[in-house]
Amino acid sequence: MKLITRAQWGARPSRYRLTHISGTKGVKIHYEGTHVPASLGRPDAHDQCAPRVRAIQASHLANDEEDYSDIAYNALVCPHGAVFEGRGAHRKTGANGTAALNAGHYAVCALLGSSGLTEPTDAQLSGLRDAVEWLRSDGDAGDEIKGHRDGHPTACPGGPLYAWVQRGAPRPGGGGGTDTPVPRYEPFPGVDWFKRNPRSPIVTAMGRRLVAVGCSAYREGPGPQWTEADRRSYARWQQRLGYRGADADGWPGRKSWNALKVPKV
């Protein structure tokens, strides 16, 4: 994934504190719905994409009627396949139409218009899949991929993009559609689950990831039974992430767990 962070594209600070959400049912696909110059799709026009994302954020922050906290989308995808971080993972979107719809799905916007540039490029479709998979792995998004118009009276995301959504949002060249599940990661089971000394394949998968990232405190294993060696190994991972003191006690937390990316068992 070609991720362009907020700092890299020059995002302004949020006006208000963004609302944290633990996860969603999935992702809804959007488009700009205005004129987007066809020239933006040229291979040599990528330097125009970050200014366009900044302009979208500026228009949202200036919208007194909607009173947006920030750019409304969790991510935006340009015709060249780059994923621009918007509100990001675990942040409630402001784009889906109502408070309930915003809590139900993340929102990813293609830099695509109702005139001018109306057909998504293959790179853009791949970038949209990248954004969906990123929100699944880092934001606990569910399996649904829908259009903005699903559940809200709007033409968004336009005919061509909505037709792609209805086909299962396949990655160009094959793979990544509804018939080919993308790799997923184990959702955070909660710190209390670990404190009950579980015996589970999840513990083994976690231990193997800790070994892979160089945080092993194991003499044997890792195995399915949670042990003090697991806790010490996890403490090393927390320290790797910059946690100190009581924050690096070896008991998994949601943010450190999501960062570890334990494969689904």
Score class of each variant (00 low, 15 high):
Cys109Leu: 14
Thr121Cys: 02
Leu125Ser: 04
Ser114Cys: 05
Trp134Leu: 14
Thr121Gln: 05
Gln124Ile: 04
Gly116Leu: 11
Leu125Met: 08
Gly104Glu: 15
Ala100Leu: 13
Leu117Glu: 06
Glu119Pro: 00
Ala131Gly: 11
Ala107Asn: 05
Arg136Thr: 05
Leu117Met: 12
Thr121Ala: 04
Val108Ala: 03
Cys109His: 03
Gln124Asp: 02
Ala99Trp: 04
Tyr106Gln: 05
Leu135Tyr: 10
Ala131Cys: 11
Thr121Trp: 00
Ser115Glu: 09
Leu125Val: 06
Leu101Arg: 12
Leu117Val: 13
Asp122Cys: 03
Gly127Asn: 09
Leu135His: 13
Leu125Ala: 03
Leu135Ser: 04
Leu101Ser: 04
Ser115Leu: 07
Ser137Asp: 12
Ser126Ile: 13
Ser115Asp: 13
Trp134Val: 00
Leu111Pro: 02
Arg129Asp: 02
Leu125Tyr: 06
Asn102Asp: 15
Leu117Gln: 13
Asp122Glu: 14
Leu135Ile: 11
Ser137Trp: 09
Ala110Leu: 01
Leu125His: 03
Leu112Pro: 05
Gly104Gln: 15
Ser126Cys: 11
Thr121Met: 05
Leu117Thr: 14
Pro120Leu: 12
Trp134Glu: 04
Ala110Trp: 00
Arg136Lys: 14
Asp130Leu: 07
Cys109Thr: 12
Gln124Tyr: 02
Leu125Trp: 03
Arg136Tyr: 02
Trp134Asn: 08
Thr118Gly: 09
Ala123Tyr: 04
Asn102Pro: 02
His105Tyr: 15
Ser114Asp: 09
Gln124Glu: 14
Ser115Gln: 08
Tyr106Ile: 03
Ala100Trp: 00
Cys109Phe: 03
Ala99Pro: 05
Leu112Ser: 01
Ser126Trp: 06
Asn102Lys: 02
Pro120Trp: 09
Ala107Asp: 07
Ser137Ala: 14
Cys109Met: 15
Asp122Phe: 01
Thr118His: 06
Ala103Gly: 15
Gln124Phe: 00
Tyr106Glu: 08
Ser137Asn: 10
Pro120Arg: 08
Ser115Asn: 08
Leu112Arg: 10
Arg129Phe: 02
Ser114Glu: 07
Asp130Lys: 09
Leu125Glu: 04
Val132Lys: 13
Val132Glu: 11
Leu111Val: 06
Val132Cys: 14
Val108His: 06
Gly116Arg: 11
Asp130Pro: 14
Leu112Trp: 10
Glu133Lys: 01
Trp134Pro: 00
His105Cys: 12
Ala103Cys: 08
Ala107Ser: 15
Gly116Glu: 10
Gly113Thr: 01
Ser126Gln: 13
Ala99Phe: 11
Ala103Thr: 07
Ala123Cys: 02
Asp122Gln: 12
Ser126Ala: 15
Ala99Met: 10
Pro120Cys: 13
Thr118Glu: 14
Arg129Gln: 03
Glu119Phe: 04
Gly127Gln: 10
Leu111Gly: 07
Ser137Glu: 12
Leu112Asp: 05
Leu128Ala: 08
Gly113Cys: 10
Ala103Pro: 04
Asn102Ala: 02
